[in-house]
Amino acid sequence: MQEITLLVNNRPYSGTVEARTTLADFLRHSLGLKGTHLGCEHGVCGACTVIVDGASVRGCLMLAVQAEGAIVETVEGLAAEDGTLHLLQEAFSREHGLQCGFCTPGMLMTLIELLRETPSPTEMEVREAISGNLCRCTGYQSIVRAVLSVTGRPGGAPGDL
């Protein structure tokens, strides 16, 4: 067993994990943050995407012990404390960017990284960013529309994301 300490959505957490526990399983089972979903568990579906030290990663291909000292962001950290949705979440809701919601946390975290770096992406850039996130409901069109509806807006500025 290994001791780890890390920051998740600005809150410090410590825990004891087995070496084989993936970061995604640690978030879900040890911290109870079940917003991060696990689909394929071999790095293909993108549902488990979280942000570690500013970069999006597959939560199923990183061990929890490797997140020692890391700053982790998950979908739970997007909405405000009072429950007000993040601009991008609101856009997903408005534009029907989700149906079953299984891929949504991974989609959102992938897109947050994109928008921080490229506040006004083109449609191509959005499609390419989510090429590693599988969605079986929406056919992507409404997800792309949701992202494009918030790009370049003042609220979409990097500081807000």
Partner: peptide, 26 residues
């Protein structure tokens, strides 16, 4: 050796391979 883990971890999750020790060089 565990480098980026983007192939190794997938193969371990699928139990194609099961090393007894992982040496993380990150």
């Amino acid at each position: 050796i565990l480098a980026g883990g983007q192939s190794l971890m997938a193969m371990m999750n699928l139990r194609y391979i099961f090393p007894s020790i992982l040496v993380d060089i990150n």
